[in-house]
Amino acid sequence: MTRTNETRQPPVGQAEPRPGMSRPAVVVHGVHKSYRSGTLDTPVLRGVDLVIETDQLSVLSGPSGSGKTTLLNLIGCIDRPDRGDLTVLGRQVGALNDNQLSDFRRDHIGFVFQNFNLLPVLTAYENVEYPLLLAGVPTDERKRRVKAALDQVGLAAQLRHYPSQLSGGQRQRVAIARAFVKAPALILADEPTANLDSENGAAIVALMRTLQRQHNVAFVISSHDPQLKAHADRVYPIRDGRLLPPEATPVRAEIAAPSLV
């Protein structure tokens, strides 16, 4: 990763924690990213600066092709920027090799996908258990955490169900439990409600918000779902690969417990 020589605007949010504040979860500085299609380079991110605080639910908002998923991928350490610096949970991830990045994701980052991405040959229990297996968590501890996670998302009765035996909303709950079960410091969700109907979408949003607060985790979501924006602590609009000033979000003193479908 290289730092650009351009004169930088200060990152959206704050580059350094203020006295008494915790370290930011993510610091993005001058990040550029292009995708090559044949001989043509298509810029997707054009010098993005961003600071995401811990313990907050942040939404990257924008239309299709705006670059929000690309930014989410960079923050999730599953892609590398062409230029710019990226610090995730205090770690300069640009300096990490592929194995180190894999280990970093395994230990610190959870993912929720638009299409749920559950492993079809594994039951709900086993899908949630899998990240703990990768992390080498002992059997007893694993069992306790998997059951607790599935209980939290309201699927204690569907432990043995395969993804094909679950509804869309239930699958996404399993995916959320899978992301939370290893107690990561950062969870990223790419359009988590895009494949759900409005009722299930609302329930999933409420669930994510509740879990985010219970676990005190930094939650970054790419979405243009207004429900999500309404629950967010911060909304970062992106247009044409550039980050716009954050939108104001409704102040929420209390989030009601989700009504589980």
């Binding site: 592929d98 894999s102 970093f104 994701r105 230990d107 993912f111």
Partner: peptide, 11 residues
Amino acid sequence: IGTLRSMGMRR
């Protein structure tokens, strides 16, 4: 494969 890799499985 992408899902497993994002969960932290190495190559």
